[in-house]
Design a protein around this nucleic acid. Structure first.
Lengths: 188, 188
DNA sequence: GTCTATAGCTTGATAGAC
DNA sequence: GTCTATCAAGCTATAGAC
């Protein structure tokens, strides 16, 4: 077979899809090879540490994604709180495909290599916590109240995603995300 | 080695521990054998369908547990709403070891055999939904309002458990569970 | 940088003795 | 009902050609 150049961003996207759908231990090198279009040896060339390195890599990309699509957006002081939050929540809905797609962080936060991933996962949640908290404080909440409501927003996202998928009803996710602006004190 | 009789309830508890900790795909027959004290062939004697059967079995036990420790308790009309809810939430705190133990339902709701487990998992969440909803209605809420608050209670439990473990901070779980009585309209 | 081929191990599962 | 012994398949990972 011909050795066709495969773009890193396409590989990353496919690896992410597989890990997010099947979890770390439910994913094999063969699955990653078929999804990415690269043979196993080629994957090892790009990721010498194998599966573990691939998962760590897509987690780092996830961290960047949250930084860009949630944190930076919410800190963009040129626009109204409401507009910023709308954009960030739209991005989150897109990421989780309206509640039909699993959360990469959650799928990698309970597996045989979790200790290796934990720091990045924690960092991702901290980025969200900071971002939502910033909005809540901007809407007049105290530091501690904002921290609590921000945590609740993340709990809503994670919990509703678990439930939406288990009950096969994406309205649960949609309703939980839709409730976040009011939770964070955004004026109607 | 001597063939020592091992009690089914002890085996069940150990199998549950392993599946809940490592997930379905992260669990091997060897791990289940070591944890239960039964050799692999003995496990196949008790569970002819292998791993899949064992996980399905512990899920059925989980369903019974929720029925007995949450649903039945909350429907026990001989006591106050507040007392019943306190007992059920204490059981939930015990089940999840104050936020340090994973949720069996969640760990089995995203794995290679999920389709095989989904019906029971769904049933477990429905039992919780009915139970919390019954309390909320008893406290004066409408059918639809009670359904919403009940769903929020389950989201709080699942979401806070994910976060508690990811952030290594069990206070997140404790606070979320502690907020449930007020959420369901129990008078202070 | 991608491939084929394969090593070495672990997996889920079974046969058959006691 | 539990065990030892074993199988075939799948796994992660590597060697070496192009």
């Amino acid at each position: 077979m011909a050795a066709v150049k495969v773009f890193p961003e396409d590989v990353d996207r496919k690896l992410n899809e597989v890990f997010t759908r099947y979890g770390y231990d439910g994913t094999s090198m063969e699955m990653l090879s078929q999804a990415s279009g690269l043979k196993k040896a080629s994957l090892y060339h790009r990721f010498p540490g194998g599966k573990k390195d691939m998962a760590a890599h897509i987690l780092k990309k996830t961290e960047t994604w949250f930084q860009e699509h949630v944190n930076s957006v919410l800190h963009d002081e040129g626009r109204s709180m409401s507009d910023r939050l709308t954009e960030a929540l739209d991005a989150i809905r897109f990421l989780f495909e309206d509640g039909t797609r699993n959360c990469t962080l959650r799928m990698l936060s309970a597996c045989s290599e979790t200790p290796y991933f934990q720091e990045t996962i924690r960092s991702c949640f901290n980025i969200l916590q900071d971002a939502f908290s910033f909005i809540a404080k901007g809407n007049g909440m105290s530091e501690s109240e904002a921290a609590g409501k921000s945590m609740q927003a993340i709990i809503n996202i994670q919990g509703s995603l678990v439930l939406s998928r288990a009950m096969d009803n994406q309205e649960i996710f949609k309703a939980s995300v839709a409730a976040i602006p009011e939770l964070l004190g955004v004026p109607k």
